[in-house]
Structures are given as structure tokens and as C-alpha cells.
Amino acid sequence: MLETSNFYFQNYEQWRHAITVKCNINLTPEYARSRIVSLQNSNDRHTQEFSAKYGDAYLQQVIEWFARAEQES
């Protein structure tokens, strides 16, 4: 099991709150899908930076959270 203390957000609810309330982003299925596509692109500079800063495990976790948000919308 991954050590969750290494994660910026500890769970989906914290992450979703930050996206929708603090950042005031409308987490539509289209937005979630576009972020998933970007985050799965290993050639994308922002994805490379995210992975380098937070690690591949957290990157995968964020992709899963966007997938969950897409399904819930």
C-alpha cells in the first residue's frame, strides 16, 4: 500500500474541494476527460513536471480522481 502522507491531497474529497471551491473550476465531464488525456501524455511538459515533483503514484491517483469526477458528473 502507498504511503498516503506523501500525497498532496489525502483523499478524493479534499482534492475535489480544492478544484471546485478553492480554484473555482467547474468539474464537468469534458474538463475531467481533457485533464485525464493530458495527464496520461508522458510527452506533455506539465505531466513530466507533475510526475517529477509528486511521483508517478500520485500522478496515477490524480488521474483516478479525475476519472471518478467524470463518472459522477
Results as ranks from 00 to 15, higher is better:
Met1Asn: 05
Met1His: 05
Asn6Gly: 11
Phe7Met: 14
Phe9Pro: 02
Gln10Tyr: 13
Asn11His: 09
Tyr12Leu: 11
Tyr12Phe: 15
Glu13Tyr: 00
Gln14Trp: 06
Gln14Pro: 01
Trp15Ser: 09
Trp15Lys: 07
Arg16Thr: 08
Arg16Tyr: 13
Ala18Asn: 14
Ile19Asp: 06
Thr20His: 03
Thr20Trp: 01
Val21Ala: 15
Val21Asp: 13
Val21Met: 13
Val21Lys: 10
Lys22Cys: 05
Lys22Tyr: 10
Lys22Pro: 00
Cys23Trp: 07
Leu27Lys: 00
Thr28Val: 08
Pro29Met: 06
Glu30Tyr: 05
Tyr31Thr: 04
Ser34Phe: 04
Ser34Val: 03
Arg35Pro: 00
Ile36Glu: 05
Ile36Ser: 04
Val37Ala: 11
Ser38Ala: 11
Leu39Val: 00
Gln40Arg: 08
Ser42Arg: 07
Ser42His: 07
Asp44Lys: 03
Thr47Trp: 07
Thr47Val: 12
Gln48Glu: 06
Glu49Gln: 09
Ser51Ala: 10
Ser51Leu: 12
Ala52Val: 06
Asp56Leu: 06
Asp56Ala: 04
Asp56Arg: 00
Asp56Glu: 12
Ala57Gln: 15
Ala57Asn: 12
Tyr58Cys: 13
Val62Gln: 10
Ile63Trp: 00
Ile63Met: 00
Glu64Tyr: 05
Trp65Gln: 11
Trp65Asp: 08
Phe66Asp: 01
Phe66Glu: 08
Arg68Lys: 14
Gln71Glu: 13
